[in-house]
């Protein structure tokens, strides 16, 4: 047995999380598209936080003397049918979009992970019942399900978040269930059971940390879908109500004037595309980086 030297400073070895993070970052950096996506996401966050303080035009006050103005140095993206500056509205709409994306995915992930982990861990009847419910949810096209939920709850930003969250649940539940099934079979789960650990302890302390990667990847990709769905709902008039500068609602407003003043729809549309694209390519890159099978 080695001598003990309690006062000697001990260099703490790097945790696998840190190590893992480093290798994941290394792989991400090699993936140019993912890096662009990542920088775009950071940029969007900065815009949503700082942007509203930098814009000079009012967000909701109409200026009927300056309607349908084309893009110019004064109004970068032009003005809409009420004479409001589109650039200002897009900048202000950024935080709404990100809020919808993150809030709905957070709620959906929370319940989805819970259902998935319970399903996968307990199996048998609980698994069958929960997964059949998830199958029912999955059987609806996402947008249709969200539409139905918002119709029932009434159109508002909160309800869009709830609707998108609900239709994200089955995706998370399925993925988490699969990962849980794989982890549950590993010997260390038996080992902690043999130590007298409760099911709750095993699930939350031992299984969840081991299945974080697929959850993170799914969440990133899911944000893109959430943004798209929320915009679609707003476009259909079921989401954010005017004069909220929500991009989908702006698209909807500009639709009637599309042939005469394209900029009313073009810029909000481009903004949605940019956010969805950023989260999608970043999520794809993240999946490749976190996938241990693709280790070089």
């Amino acid at each position: 047995m080695a001598e003990t030297t309690p006062n000697q400073p001990v260099t703490k070895p790097p945790s696998p999380f840190v190590e893992n993070f480093k290798t994941v970052m290394k792989k991400l950096k090699k993936n140019k598209a993912a890096m662009i996506g990542g920088y775009m996401i950071i940029f969007f966050f900065l815009v949503s936080i700082i942007g509203p303080w930098l814009t000079v035009h009012p967000v909701t006050t109409p200026d009927l003397t300056n309607r349908f103005a084309p893009p110019s140095t004064e109004n970068w993206f032009g003005t809409d049918n009420f004479g409001r500056d589109i650039f200002t509205r897009i900048v202000h709409g950024m935080s709404i979009t990100l809020y919808i994306g993150f809030a709905s995915v957070a709620i959906g992930a929370f319940f989805g992970v819970l259902i998935g982990v319970i399903s996968g861990y307990y199996g048998k009847k609980i698994d069958s019942v929960l997964m059949r419910i998830m199958d029912v949810l999955l059987a609806f096209p996402g947008i249709l399900l969200a539409l139905a939920i918002v119709t029932v709850l009434g159109g508002s930003l909160q309800n869009v978040v709830i609707a998108v969250a609900i239709f994200s649940i089955p995706m998370f539940a399925r993925i988490v269930r699969g990962s849980t099934l794989a982890v549950r079979k590993l010997e260390y789960v038996d080992a902690v059971r043999a130590l007298g650990a409760t099911d709750v302890r095993i699930i939350f302390r031992h299984i969840l940390p081991n299945i974080m990667s697929p959850i993170i990847v799914q969440a990133t990709l899911r944000i893109a879908t959430a943004v798209l769905t929320a915009s679609a709902l707003s476009y259909l008039g079921l989401g954010a109500q005017p004069p909220t500068p929500e991009w989908g609602a702006m698209l909807s407003d500009g639709r009637a004037y599309m042939w005469d003043s394209l900029h009313l729809t073009l810029f909000p549309g481009l903004a949605i595309v940019a956010v969805v694209l950023a989260f999608n390519i970043f999520g794809d890159g993240l999946r490749d980086a976190l996938d241990p099978k693709l280790k070089d």
Binding site: P16, F17, E187, Y188, A191, R193, A194, G196, H206
Partner: peptide, 22 residues
């Protein structure tokens, strides 16, 4: 659960997979 790990303990066959990697 009170007995497991407390009065009766078990060592598993495969030390490589019996420890939680995280």
């Amino acid at each position: 659960r009170k007995i497991r790990g407390n009065q009766i303990s078990m060592i598993f066959q495969e030390p490589m997979t019996s420890l939680n990697p995280v």
